[in-house]
Computed example of a mutant assay.
Amino acid sequence: MDRETVGSALVDTPRHLDALAEDIARHGIRTSLRLGFCEDFGTLDGNHRIAVALRLGLTTVPVTVIREPSTPRPAHARPMRAADFAVLAAAAGE
């Protein structure tokens, strides 16, 4: 994949996402997105894959839904709404 180091950060270039889009168009999403959740927050690992799926017009993507402990809270966690928690708990088989 095409990435560039800017300062101390590894940055994805447009060519990186183009290459990922080409791979997903050819082979599909081979690694499930990971959706972690608890009563307090949710996390998504797979932002590039979901962005490419939207770009390609995919209507479904593979997702693994996992209940997380409330601590430690990952830096990329987002607040959880009660209605969303109920949907995720049901998807996780709770």
Rank of each mutant, 00 (worst) to 15 (best):
L35A: 05
T71S: 14
V65N: 05
A89V: 09
A51M: 13
D2Q: 04
V63G: 09
F85D: 00
G7A: 07
H27D: 15
L44C: 15
F41K: 04
D45I: 11
A75C: 00
R81E: 10
P69D: 01
T31H: 11
N47K: 11
S8P: 00
L56E: 04
D23M: 12
T59R: 14
L10A: 08
D12E: 12
G28R: 06
I29V: 15
R26F: 12
R3W: 05
P74D: 09
L54H: 11
A77K: 07
E68V: 06
G93C: 06
R26N: 09
T60V: 13
E4W: 01
V11P: 01
N47F: 08
F41E: 01
I24R: 07
I24L: 04
C38P: 02
E39D: 08
G42C: 03
V11R: 11
R78Q: 15
A51E: 14
V87G: 00
A86R: 07
F37L: 04
I66D: 00
T59H: 12
A91P: 03
V61C: 08
A51V: 07
E39V: 02
G93M: 07
R81G: 13
D18C: 02
E39L: 02
G7Q: 00
F41C: 03
L35Q: 05
L35I: 07
F41G: 04
V65I: 14
T13K: 03
A25T: 03
T31C: 03
P72M: 01
L10F: 03
S32I: 00
G57V: 08
E68L: 14
R78I: 13
V63C: 09
G93N: 07
L44K: 11
V61F: 09
L54C: 10
P79E: 03
F85R: 12
L20I: 15
T5K: 14
N47T: 12
G36Y: 06
A9H: 13
V63D: 05
H48P: 11
V87P: 00
G7R: 05
A77Q: 06
I50F: 08
R26E: 15
S32K: 06
A53P: 14
L56C: 07
D23A: 15
E4H: 06
R49Q: 13
D23G: 10
F85P: 03
A75I: 05
L54T: 07
